[in-house]
Design a binder for these strands. Structure first.
Lengths: 214, 214
DNA sequence: CGTAAAAGTGACCAGGTGGTCACTTCTAGC
DNA sequence: GCTAGAAGTGACCACCTGGTCACTTTTACG
């Protein structure tokens, strides 16, 4: 392992957290290239030399933050997927939406970075990273849909590839609407509180069930 | 009107077009702040002083390009909306998707700028601009849906606000998938040719009709 | 031609960037 | 208290940016 990173990881937890929070905030607000290590260091009241000691380059800092964030995100998701394996498709979708909404509530800056990465090409190793974290990718949804079809939970005659595309679009957009205005088409999702979000998830899944279920 | 802009508009059409193309390319690739007027000028083999003579600031250049692009985009859309006013909801959706796909095919750089603006906050007057051009906003879709309901084209019992949210999500995503990988959930939309796109639009609208129509 | 106005130029400026490294300060174990 | 090594520092570097403006070149017309 890199020597600087070892130094960083030997720091007190509180300081490590402060540094990662500052980095997340800076990247979330400015993207990769416009993010300024000078500004981060000033905000943290530490010397920028320290940050370069820890991570070597700005890219190294981003990589570290990214790996750290993936860890925060994959745990709960895997758990949700396992615990609902025997339930029907729509219940599983409900749970995964709820897990996503929870993550966004707890880590709004990380989610903003993800959204920026979608259409901003200047993040390091963007394609690799994105394909690792796209939540509702075909890879994840297709097996769910196939299983639901086998169980007869879906209306016959619908093209499964279309179902996957459709679910991907709607669920991704649902989560985007929680943290970006313009996106909710008047559905009142932007910065809704937890109870409101749970209610909207219910409505959304019911709607899907009406359109896709048998 | 600004004196510099008058100078620009007096130039030969071919040169104006070259300048606007170069600006679109630069903003599409780098967003607003990372876009470099130096690079533009070098690519065009003109002095950067000229660009500042025309538009005053980088922001002025962006504004000009934006206004120009809105013009390219609103004409065909209005025409499509008028010509299909008497058709049913799904046919109208099909036509507006086709119009969007056509615009993206003809002006891919402009569309890339729009996508960057969605999640990148550093564009000048971003909120104003976005609310002007969001294609499938509630403002546009809601009347279509209400009209379709009055005509009995929709399955009873579906919440119209949800219908609007869903149509917005699916259609926006459909267009995004044409110009960004990762987005098509395996549906093969990325950089599909014109015939392929027309076919996919048909499938998508048929699918919507099955789920939402009566 | 001459000339006046329009168009075009590029060296220059202040300010910000990522990154470096010789140096100082802190800390833990004796 | 001493000391070795870890942690922290900030002046400095080369580079790039948006923007300026005194200057040159081109154009149009009598």
């Amino acid at each position: 392992m890199n020597q600087g990173v070892e130094t960083f990881e030997r720091l007190r937890d509180e300081k490590k957290q402060r540094v990662l929070d500052a980095a997340a905030s800076e990247f979330a607000e400015h993207g990769f290239h416009r993010a300024s290590v000078n500004r981060m260091a000033a905000g943290l009241s530490i010397a920028k030399g320290s940050i370069f000691k820890y991570f070597g380059t700005k890219e190294g800092l981003f990589e570290y933050l990214f790996r750290h964030s993936v860890g925060l995100f994959k745990g709960p998701l895997r758990q949700a997927a396992q615990s609902s394996a025997n339930q029907d498709l729509f219940e599983r979708l409900r749970l995964s939406l709820a897990t996503g909404a929870r993550f966004i509530e707890e880590h709004p800056l990380i989610y903003r970075i993800y959204l920026k990465m979608l259409f901003q090409e200047d993040f390091p190793r963007r394609e690799t990273h994105l394909s690792e974290i796209r939540l509702y990718s075909a890879k994840y949804l297709r097996p769910l849909v196939d299983q639901a079809r086998a169980r007869g939970e879906l209306r016959p005659g619908l093209d499964p590839a279309m179902i996957v595309f459709f679910l991907d679009a709607v669920m991704d957009r649902f989560l985007q609407a929680l943290s970006v205005p313009f996106m909710d088409a008047g559905a009142g999702l932007f910065r809704a509180d937890r109870a409101e979000v749970a209610k909207k998830i219910g409505q959304c899944v019911d709607f899907l069930r009406q359109g896709l279920g048998r």
